[in-house]
């Protein structure tokens, strides 16, 4: 081609071929990586109070009391990761007052954008289960949950 534009491939838009099992070698991205990216992206949306619900949230609370274990970033996020695609299930607790339909749409969009940008995997679906709604008075007898993102 006679064009003088940069010949560097535009890796930002084209999802990289993972598990590119050619002469160069194979790339494997562990599912915990996808879980973390999806969890961070979901929490970024304001109106999301927490991830998890029911059993997994209770388990997360239990884990937090074990010294040194830290918060489980992946509670409420389960993923299925193939060679080029990922499917993500999220359990979320929303703040009272948030429009759940719009909120879910925003969460889905942010999760897809983040996971595709960071991992290069194509996200084929993001299923969102809203498990609970968080009311302001729930915070009265306990310390307000420290949210990392506003």
């Amino acid at each position: 081609m006679a064009q003088t534009t940069s010949t560097k491939p535009d890796t930002a838009n084209v999802p990289a071929r993972l598990a590119d099992d050619t002469a160069q070698g194979k790339t494997t991205i562990a599912s915990s990586v996808v879980q973390k990216v999806a969890g961070i992206a979901a929490r970024e949306i304001s109106g999301v109070h927490a991830l998890g619900g029911g059993v997994s949230r209770a388990f997360g609370a239990l884990r937090e009391r074990i010294p040194g274990a830290g918060t489980s970033t992946t509670s409420g996020v389960s993923v299925e990761v193939g060679e080029k695609q990922a499917a993500i299930d999220l359990d979320i607790v929303v703040e009272y007052g948030a429009g759940i339909v719009d909120l879910a749409r925003a969460v889905r969009r942010n999760v897809i954008t983040a996971v595709e940008r960071i991992t290069g995997l194509e996200v084929i679906e993001v299923n969102i289960a809203v498990n609970d709604i968080h009311l302001p008075e729930d915070d009265e007898d306990q310390e307000p949950a420290q949210s990392r993102v506003e």
Partner: peptide
Amino acid sequence: RPVDVVVADLEDP
């Protein structure tokens, strides 16, 4: 030589 790369995890931010 072919290089197989495993991204095993992300460090917590």
